[in-house]
């Protein structure tokens, strides 16, 4: 199976409370925050690796995993990190973040999919900077491919994938024949969430994503990294969404500590009046 994983790098999500809206409201400033791979995209890479191996011999790939990012040169560090964890090839499409919106990324990805011909495009369900959750859906429509969003479980079943989607009130189980678009949710990296047809049914992964061993980091420097121009993949580069301004969130004043449960009950009853 050949898997294409679009991956975005985002300002460190664990410090998202340090982003600043500039005084003129024109920009969200993320300076000082480290770049990290979008966590959902890291999970998509892990999922792609699990789908192209048997679990026990992670170095023998039964297929190919290609990662692609749209962004400036500095994104190559993130791509190299993914090559070190096991991806085979990387593609960077030269672009600045503010030149892009989800629609444009999806249009360009469509062209790239036509060139690369993967069996599966695996994306994160959302990039945690814009929190938009749209690229996978738009891409599926542009390609005329079936899609399954928010996947928490994927099992390869012959030429198809059995996918469990996390939705309100439970899990929808779908059978999807390739080629297809799948976006992944948090629990896709649980120990028994992803099985390729080579993986033994009782095999359990470690929770979370794998880390690159040092020799792999060295070897990753030799893995191929192609650089494309956005114009090679999209002629229409107009944005469908624009942000003329940004606003900071309303702050929430820190409350008070109560000394014991009796005081808490008293406050809830007489001050907050919520009992």
């Amino acid at each position: 199976m050949k898997v294409l994983v679009p991956l975005k790098r985002v300002a460190d999500p664990d410090n998202a409370n340090k982003v600043k809206v500039t005084a003129d409201g024109k920009k969200v400033e993320t300076t000082g925050l480290e770049w990290k791979p979008n966590p959902f995209d890291e999970y998509a890479v892990e999922t792609a690796l699990r789908l192209t191996e048997d679990g026990t011999k992670p170095k023998t790939r039964a297929g190919e995993v290609v990662v692609v990012t749209f962004g400036p040169k500095e994104c190559e560090i993130t791509l190299r990190a993914m090559l070190a964890t096991g991806a085979d090839r990387a593609i960077r499409v030269e672009a600045e973040d503010d030149q892009l919106d989800g629609w444009l990324v999806a249009r360009a990805l469509k062209k790239l999919v036509e060139q690369e011909k993967p069996d599966l495009v695996l994306l994160g369900k959302q990039a945690v900077d814009g929190d938009t959750n749209q690229v996978g859906q738009i891409l599926a429509e542009l390609l005329g491919w079936p899609m399954a969003t928010s996947a928490a479980m994927i099992k390869e079943d012959g030429e198809a994938l059995l996918v469990g989607r996390e939705v309100d009130g439970g899990v929808i189980n779908l059978k999807v024949r390739l080629p297809a678009v799948v976006t992944v949710d948090l629990r896709i990296v649980a120990p028994a969430s992803v099985y390729s047809k080579l993986t033994k049914a009782d095999f359990k992964y470690n929770e979370g994503v794998r880390f690159a061993p040092l020799p792999a980091i060295m070897q990753a420097k030799k893995k191929p990294m192609a650089v494309l121009k956005l114009a090679d993949l999209a002629t229409d580069t107009a944005l469908r969404i624009q942000y003329p301004r940004f606003e900071p969130p309303k702050g929430r004043a820190a409350g008070k500590k109560v000394k014991d449960v009796a005081e808490l009950v008293d406050k809830l009853k007489n001050e907050a009046k919520v009992l």
Binding site: P13, A16, V19, V128, D131
Partner: peptide, 8 residues
């Protein structure tokens, strides 16, 4: 956006 730490 940004987990509710900015609004666009």
């Amino acid at each position: 956006m940004f987990a509710g730490n900015a609004y666009g």
